[in-house]
Design a protein around this nucleic acid. Structure first.
Lengths: 234, 234
DNA sequence: TGGTGAGGATTGTTCAACAATTCACCGATC
DNA sequence: GATCGGTGAATTGTTGAACAATCCTCACCA
């Protein structure tokens, strides 16, 4: 065991080294397509066609479908196939309810957050500012997700991280279903900066308050956008 | 469309009618065995042997494994097989962290809970009292889980329900790993009754306080039991 | 004692097949 | 003209077998 000193430096490589199964890689690829809108909500995914396109067998593809089904990105209708999920108004409300509980809790206990966690929140803020600067609205959206993921990480809880990651992925689906996602995210860049500053100053309760207000505003905005959508359809 | 009135009455049947896939039924069966301890933490599940025993093909069984893996009841080690999860001390702490956030939030907003939700909490309390009366400690544990599930349901949020259900299932795994699960749950029956009464009286903040204390005590008790366990092993 | 292969067992993945189910189409009926 | 019922193609659900890749054991050797 004399040679086992300083091995902690390699622990970061673990994730990289772990080969993943084909099903997981397929799931990753599909998740990307769903999140960036290449696969629209409601679209049906044929086992045969997709399997051929991706070069994997139906069985493997079905495993990938199961993974994404659990993330609520796909819905599996028995004997009917899998479809890209179509979030409804109720889903939007529900997503915000859970986010509120988890993210606010994470912010309130940020004093016990792990080393560097607040800094990662700041990094996400800057990423968003940079994207906004070059007019990359999709990039702003991505940075925004990363910001909230970083907020959740303040709880120092793997399960919170996982749940929030799923919620945010689902939320991106909602953005595709709404009318004008283009300038939804941009206004919040400044707010994110403010929340990060409060975190740095240790004013956690104030930060939680601002975050709570954000949830109110964003949720209402989404709900309204959604109501208009459905009105148009009818 | 003149005949389509009053069809809402049938919407309850939807769930009953939906046939489930073989994989899901297999997953249900395995989940039961894991939760009631028939499959001990750490046990390895052979695809071949289990498939034969259950009368399903390896492919189908693998689908079921994926489902339970997402619930963290099984861990899937690449090229090595699936094992019943072995929760560690860190998992106990993490489980309570997320439960605290979600259940407390649910209790605090119980004034907006759906019709009959508080009554279902009461039903779980009585179930626990009945089980305690006849000395059925396992039944007390089950009722306790149902009590907390009912608390979570106060949030009126499908996603909260799902997450909490998963957390509680995982928690049962923890009980198997600890020394004396026999009389762990019984002392909390009285507390549950108290919390229910506070909910009925609308004293939500007080109820949340009691619940928070419960989390403190239960978590510490589990952590201690766990530390002893690992000491014995070494 | 500690390293090293060889071999057996298990998983990862594919393929082909068949049963079960859905869906769209089309004619029959009132 | 709308509804009902049935036929058939297309798709999913599930199985079983096959083979490659990987891991584990254990005897063997320095």
């Amino acid at each position: 065991m004399a040679t086992s000193e300083g091995l902690e430096a390699f622990s970061d490589l673990r994730g990289t080294l772990e080969r993943s199964s084909t099903a997981e890689r397929v799931a990753d690829a599909l998740r990307e397509r769903i999140i960036d809108g290449a696969l629209a909500p409601g679209a049906r995914l044929s086992e045969e066609a997709l399997g051929q396109a991706l070069g994997v067998s139906r069985n493997t593809l079905r495993e990938a479908f199961r993974l994404l089904g659990h993330e609520r990105l796909l819905v599996h209708r028995f004997n009917r196939g899998v479809f890209v999920a179509e979030p409804e108004l109720a889903d939007v409300v529900d997503l915000y309810r859970v986010r509120r509980a988890l993210e606010l809790d994470a912010v309130r206990r940020a004093d016990r957050a792990p080393e560097g966690a607040v800094a990662r929140v700041g990094a996400a803020v800057e990423e968003g500012e940079a994207a906004a600067g070059r007019g990359d609205w999709w990039g702003v959206g991505t940075a925004n997700m990363r910001f909230h993921q970083a907020l959740a990480a303040l709880a120092d809880s793997p399960r919170t991280d996982e749940v929030v990651r799923r919620l945010l992925a689902e939320l991106r689906l909602v953005f595709h279903a709404m009318a004008a996602p283009r300038d939804f995210h941009v206004p919040y860049v400044a707010l994110n900066r403010r929340i990060h500053r409060l975190l740095e100053e240790g004013r956690l309760e104030k930060a939680a308050e601002e975050l709570s207000d954000y949830f109110d505003v964003a949720e209402r905005q989404l709900v309204e956008a959604f109501s208009e959508e459905t009105e148009e359809k009818e």
